[in-house]
């Protein structure tokens, strides 16, 4: 078999997952910010995935990191969950 190039001490690069993670396929629903003024400032600390942040005075949710758990929408009236997929459905639906 082809051996991988590995470090001597088994270890992973710090923070590397943040750069490559793509959690979109875990979502059935996605959070949508409907009102910036109705977001609890603690919401970023409730997010398990570090997917929501306040930057330049506005909250934004990462398309890539969000797994669609819905905690942010539970905690903040300014966020609501919408279906991830809105296109045509197959015969079973």
């Amino acid at each position: 078999m082809a051996f991988k190039s590995v470090p001597v001490v088994p270890a992973g690069e710090a923070g590397a997952l943040a750069a490559v993670a793509d959690n979109r396929n875990q979502r059935l629903r996605r959070p949508e910010i409907s009102d910036q003024t109705q977001i609890d400032p603690l919401t970023p600390l409730y997010c398990p995935d570090g997917a929501i942040a306040l930057t330049a005075g506005r909250y934004a949710i990462s398309e890539r990191l969000c797994k669609g758990c819905g905690i942010c929408a539970q905690e903040s009236p300014g966020i609501r969950m919408v279906p991830e997929y809105t296109g045509p459905r197959g015969i079973l639906n």
């Binding site: 923070g15 997952l17 943040a18 750069a19 993670a21 995935d49 949710i61 398309e63 797994k67």
Partner: peptide, 21 residues
């Protein structure tokens, strides 16, 4: 949604392999 939101480096959690929620 946007991808600019994760530019802030978090010490832990971004891209972790745990369950949603």
């Amino acid at each position: 949604m946007t991808d600019s939101a994760n530019t802030a480096e978090e010490l832990f959690g971004q891209g972790h392999a745990g369950c949603k929620g």
